[in-house]
Amino acid sequence: MSAPDSLRGIWPIAVYTWREGIRKKTLIGFLILSLLVIFGSMFMTAFMAGIDYSPSGEINIDVESKLVKDVCVSAIAIFGVLIAIFTSASVVPQELENRVIYTVLSKPVRRYQYLLGKFLGVQMIVIANLLLMSVLFFIALWIKEQIIPTLLLWSTLLTYFQFLIVSSFTFAISCAATSSVLPTIAGLFIYITGNLTNYLNDVFKRSSGSDNPFESAVAEVAFYLYAILPNLRNFDLKDQILYLAPNDPPAGILIPNLILYGVLYALSGYLLAFWLFRRKEL
């Protein structure tokens, strides 16, 4: 066959994972919820009473479209990360449960290839969902004000790399687990922790230099955690992207760096997954 030996079987496994994944009820549920929010946001401003009181109608329309954008971008981020967590937490444990993994691994497929296939499949699902939600969001925006904000595409791209980090570590934990419950909880925890990393820095700043040895120890721990844990807030460039001028040098530098950031953590997540799974007794 033309594919190199080391890539054997990855693609069929990914496709299989994808085909199975997109049929999941939780996933479809989240998707429907996110669509409700996206289209619902268009009507949210109906609760803004007395639009005719404004000095010029224009401003209120701006507020409305801003609300639609903010709500949709957040909805995509939240539902997208939930989909990423639930999918990555369940693909491997589910195969353990229904024993498909035995038939697959008894074939000439090495474990890292199996994991790569699964991981790839998960990413395909996550990307497809993200794209679907984004497209619908753009449709909603189009209906609302007949524009396609191209800058939002960058925001969507960065959101994906945020998902990628959460997804890869959730996946790693799922490789050590026997059911999908623990990795799902862990994934949510990773997401929450990743969002609160800045808080660790605050803890460090407040506690460092304290005379109390306990406090300074806490500061030390907080500092190191802050230094190594992925900071998911970093991916939140919405301010810069959505509202600032098109030419924004910091955003221009940050975007490729953030992509690299996401890829590095995701790679380490995959390595962790492989490390945990390599000698796992199935």
Binding site: A3, P12, R19, Y102, T103, K107, P108
Partner: peptide
């Protein structure tokens, strides 16, 4: 290898499953 009580996904056809496993054999 035929494992005990293995599961095969409902949404696939018989030959699709075989195609999948065949692809694993390259």
């Amino acid at each position: 290898y035929l494992p005990e009580g293995a599961y095969y996904p409902d949404f696939l056809r018989g030959d699709e499953i075989l195609r999948f496993y065949g692809q694993l054999y390259q």
